[in-house]
Design a protein around this nucleic acid. Structure first.
Length: 273
DNA sequence: ACTATTTCCTGGATGC
DNA sequence: TGCATCCAGGAAATAG
């Protein structure tokens, strides 16, 4: 599932390959639950636009669009959320159309950008230029004091707070579990109960885990691949996620799995307090 | 202002 | 082999 490191990898890949290209025409399928803007509006906004850049904001891919020939004339932003199974693929027109293809943007270079999403938890929208903002703080390089304040007075489990995109935007189930393991904090701990030392370790763990995961090209669980169809390999470095029953890499205690807010949470009962 | 629960959706895994 | 059932989960909506 695409979280911050996967979305970062995909956005960088897309930027490298299609920045500067111009969208000539757009086809949108009929599955409207994916669309946060009306299909007509999306098509009209994308058609004729030049893609200045693709980049990541939270778990969103943002495409900055401009008027062709006038790079400095901002036009709109194309916002893509991959949900659980969404993919953005750079294809040749003759490439076979994958099942569950919901949008195809034909580019001036002759290539196509395709959005594919079997489970349809993804979202597509267009917004005014420079108007898009993630609902919460950017986890990478967040201010330490601001970070600590996010959890003040929160009664929910720290794991749930980490998944709350309105607090931090970008952390999902994998990196929440992995960060909590490295920080030695149990997922069920009430967020407000974290000491200053806990928060410092958590902050550092998040920075470390996200940086390592980005360097590894993300985690390929489920069917994640980047915009080149390449798998990431951070899943090989997971210490707790999806390792229920397997020995902790530090102390050999079997990793436990519990369900918090309907989400699997994995932790070492010995290393995490 | 929070928090907890439900909903959306398909494919892969499991069980009989 | 086939068919039914369950499960994964990001985030919005709903209920408390």
């Amino acid at each position: 599932m695409p979280e911050l490191p996967e979305v970062e990898t995909i956005a960088r890949g897309l930027d490298k390959r299609v920045a500067g290209d111009v969208i000539e025409s757009v086809w949108i399928g009929n599955k409207s639950n994916l669309l946060k803007s009306p299909a007509k509006v999306i098509a009209k906004t994308l058609e004729g636009a030049r893609i200045e850049h693709f980049r990541r904001v939270g778990k969103h891919i943002v495409g900055d669009l401009s008027e062709p020939g006038r790079k400095t004339a901002p036009r709109a932003q194309w916002i893509i959320h991959l949900g659980m199974t969404g993919r953005m693929m750079v294809c040749q027109p003759e490439d076979e159309t994958a099942k569950h293809t919901h949008l195809v943007a034909s580019l001036k270079s002759g290539r196509e950008l395709r959005f594919v999403d079997p489970r349809r938890f993804g979202k597509l929208q267009v917004v005014d230029a420079a108007s898009f903002a993630a609902p919460g703080a950017e986890p990478i390089g967040a201010d330490r004091d601001q970070f600590a304040k996010l959890f003040k007075g929160r009664k929910s489990p720290i794991k749930s707070a980490l998944l709350n995109q309105k607090l931090l935007s970008g952390i999902g189930n994998i990196y929440a579990d992995e960060s909590l393991f490295r920080a030695g904090i149990r997922p069920r701990r009430q967020a407000a109960s974290l000491t200053k030392a806990d928060l410092t370790r958590l902050y550092d763990s998040i920075q470390e885990v996200l940086a390592e995961a980005i360097a590894a090209g993300g985690s390929s669980v489920s069917d994640y691949v980047d915009s080149d169809g390449e798998e990431g390999f951070f899943q090989l470095q997971h210490r707790v996620y999806q390792r229920e029953g397997e020995p902790c890499l530090v102390c050999k205690t079997p990793i436990k799995r519990i369900v918090l807010g309907g989400r699997s949470s994995h932790y070492c009962p010995s290393c995490q307090k």
